[in-house]
Amino acid sequence: MKVIKIDKNDWTRGIDKSRETYQLFGPVTDKNQSVFKQLGKDAYPEMGRTDTIMSPKSVLFPQTEKILTASLDESVENHHIMQMPETDTTPRAVIGIRPYDAKAVQLVKLNFDTPEYRDTYWCDAYEATTFVGLAVNQPSASDFSTSMGSGPFAEEGLDLLLVDLDDHYLAKVLTPKGETFLDGAGFNGTADTDASLKTIQGMKEAAEAAITSLVPTDKLKEKSLLDLHGAPFWEDTAFSCINCGTCTFVCPTCWCFDIQDETKGKSTSRFRNWDSCMSPLFTMHGSGHNPRGEKTQRVRQRFMHKLKYFLDKYDQGSMCVGCGRCVEKCPVNIDIRSICNTMNSYEPQK
């Protein structure tokens, strides 16, 4: 295990140097809000910012992505044949990604990179990306990542973990990709590895202890899927839901998309756009039948997928990393923590 010390005075120089090899993404302020964006030439990641509204999932999975194109001009060779557009797979680096968001990428990977199917667009982007994480020294009140198999200093899915120590960062090298990034940026300050790891461990424990939001998940696995599905609490849980897509769009693990074709003149393109299981349209069949036509069914679907179906299918924890974005942003304050609690403690009436 290698640890590098990065003096904050060298930070901007290193970031600039890394631009020679990488397209950079990071948290920036846009109209008073913190968002993850591709960084322009003069922009630097704002490492001190609180959590971003939107997760960095769009770096690998843009909200609108062109996946195929074709020409409708019959004088052109291969007209009407869909082809992959040119995609950019040059190296990119996500700077300042939170540990729970990096864990989320690993969960999404289970869906886009399977033994049977490989989603070229997502996987190519994933392979091109280096994840430079920033440990969370002061977790927010709605952060419940430690309950969801992640945590403020969790390393899963990261290539590098930066730990902020006021005047410098300690960079824990987790993968060869991480090491390459440090080389590319010219960060090579040596640190006493044992002492640094000890410091990081101490800060990790303090940060984990600072998380006040603890959500029990221990019984979800043993609960019967059908009992939970038929539980009476969904009606009341769903009452206030207005069926917007906020929770699904801000969620770092929501991966569903819709396919749309658009034609202009002689050129046509196929896009995929983020979709949301909160929308009645999501499950509308061509026949007109809608298996999830009622709001309660849709709300149940979202939480059952996150906390039960996913767990049963992959046995890799739940499909929630505890970032707290949906808790903060839901217009009607539907709180996944309370619902998880209810599900975890649910006993069917005999």
Binding site: E262, T263, K264, G265, T268
Partner: peptide, 11 residues
């Protein structure tokens, strides 16, 4: 002159 607003360029 020509209008460029509310004109979609993608396709």
């Amino acid at each position: 002159g020509p209008n460029h607003k509310l004109v979609k360029n993608a396709g």
